[in-house]
């Protein structure tokens, strides 16, 4: 029980003090998990991260689940995950409760007018960065273009795009290794 509580508290602290999720969390995870608690080695954390990144779901949650499971099985993974989401639940609920009261003020409206532009720029920038990393050949470019157009203009469900592109990836690799 003590160990579960410690998992909860440690991940709670990580959830409360990291901004931005994903990679922004890595230094904090290293400090808390590797250096302070010695729950995993640096290499293991990198492994968890790589696996967390290419499995469905939120990277931070996947990593928390992994470390929790290694320590205390399924109850450990639930304690670590619960700790990670707890600060978000509290902070965001409070913001959501009061945001409606503020959003009609002119100053808040103008601020969010500007903020929305920044969000558009941040998303556009992420897409540009991801393009360089994810599109390696003409098939990649085709999958990128097709899923963009299908979801943006034809209202195709993103789930379908993920399933089809995974199948395409597997089939193409099979065909290529078969041809060799």
């Amino acid at each position: 029980m003590k160990e579960l509580w410690k998992l909860f508290i440690t991940f709670c602290r990580m959830g409360a003090f990291t901004f931005g999720g994903g990679y922004a969390m890595l230094p904090m995870i290293q400090k808390e998990i590797v250096e302070k608690n010695k729950w995993a080695t640096e290499e293991e954390v990198m492994d968890y991260y790589a696996i967390g990144q290419c499995t469905p779901g939120i990277i931070a949650i996947n990593t928390a689940t992994f470390i929790g499971f290694k320590r205390k099985g399924i109850s450990g993974s639930i304690a670590a995950t619960a700790g990670m989401v707890f600060p978000s639940l509290v902070i965001i609920t409070v913001i959501a409760m009061y945001f409606r009261q503020f959003q009609d003020y002119a100053i808040v409206k103008h601020a969010f007018g500007g903020i929305r532009v920044a969000v558009a720029a941040l998303v556009a920038n992420t897409v540009l960065k991801m393009l360089k990393k994810s599109v390696k050949d003409s098939l990649g470019l085709l999958i990128f273009g097709a899923s963009f157009l299908a979801v943006a203009f034809l209202d195709v469900s993103p789930i379908i795009a993920v399933v089809i592109s995974a199948t395409l990836g597997i089939v193409t690799k099979e065909v290529r290794t078969g041809a060799k």
Binding site: V123, K136, G140, F144, L168
Partner: peptide, 19 residues
Amino acid sequence: AAFYGIRPAVTGLIGAAGF
């Protein structure tokens, strides 16, 4: 192999959301 296909699709999906 699956991720070789999924990564560009995810970029396209986020692009669509950005649009």
